[in-house]
Design a protein around this nucleic acid. Sequence first.
DNA 1: TTTACTGATACTAATTTAGTATCAGTTTAT
DNA 2: ATAAACTGATACTAAATTAGTATCAGTAAA
Lengths: 152, 152
Amino acid sequence: MKVLNKHSDYALRALIALGMEPGVRKSAKALSEAQGIPYQFLRRILQELIRSGLVSSKEGAGGGVALARAPDEIRVSDVIEIFQGPVQVSECMFRRQLCSNRANCVLRHEIMRIEQVVNDEFSKVTVGKLAGDLRRVEEARKNLLVQEKPKG
Amino acid sequence: MKVLNKHSDYALRALIALGMEPGVRKSAKALSEAQGIPYQFLRRILQELIRSGLVSSKEGAGGGVALARAPDEIRVSDVIEIFQGPVQVSECMFRRQLCSNRANCVLRHEIMRIEQVVNDEFSKVTVGKLAGDLRRVEEARKNLLVQEKPKG
DNA sequence: TTTACTGATACTAATTTAGTATCAGTTTAT
DNA sequence: ATAAACTGATACTAAATTAGTATCAGTAAA
Ligand code: FES
Ligand code: FES
């Protein structure tokens, strides 16, 4: 069961890359090369993010994209919603004979509860948080290198 | 984002149908007709459930399948695991440049935490519970009919 | 020995996901 | 003016996954 498809995956990486230096505009080409994401594919993903309002863009030479909101205001759940639609456990279990009265269906309640939990978890994690985590990871690695080659 | 694919969906329906009358053996044909699941497809699904040990079978005329465990011992997560593999949020975010040190990766921890939560939720729900819920739904509907046509 | 079933497995069709390509328009720099 | 570096929109192809079908062999009961 793969939760993130490539669209969401790449979108997140691009968003986090942008979130590392909020306000700095980057071109699709630069992002594509830095993150190892196929250029044309990333372009379409960015266009989608722009349409959805997570990212802002500037056309022409020297143009590019940047986060349209604060990194902490962009949730992983937003990204999943855009590229994979809302979380749905099952189209509708027992739809045929058994569940003519959807409104009162206990099974449906169970299903919706889980959908909610999954969604909540993905809402808790923001691009800002991931970028922060990543920053700390990079710091740690840098320090490690300094230790290995001290005063060099 | 569709969580259950048709395999898991149909498997669950079949398991719950079996769970409504544990111990009673039912043929693939009967299940297929009762649940509106394509026969050959359901056959393969049942064979998979049998191999996985959730269901027991008896060959020959009058044969069929039944739950191999107590309904409460069959979790939705078991079914998902069989047909869709273990929950994976992302193959490995930032695998390339950024995450050579997977063991210490904060992002990875975040991802694994969510995977755990999702899995936990699906482990909480058993075939026994779903069958019980369904039983209550059917009771409620029956009572409703009695009310509508009282003493008829 | 026919009928009703499962076991194993090969196959096809449909859908989704991933990835590519193209052309038009915008901004900057020369 | 025009070339270069960009995004906007959209059509297209390829690969992978999912869904569904078919077939043949074997088993058990009537
Ligand atoms: S599961 Fe569909 S209404 Fe009950
Ligand atoms: S996300 Fe892959 S190791 Fe960090």
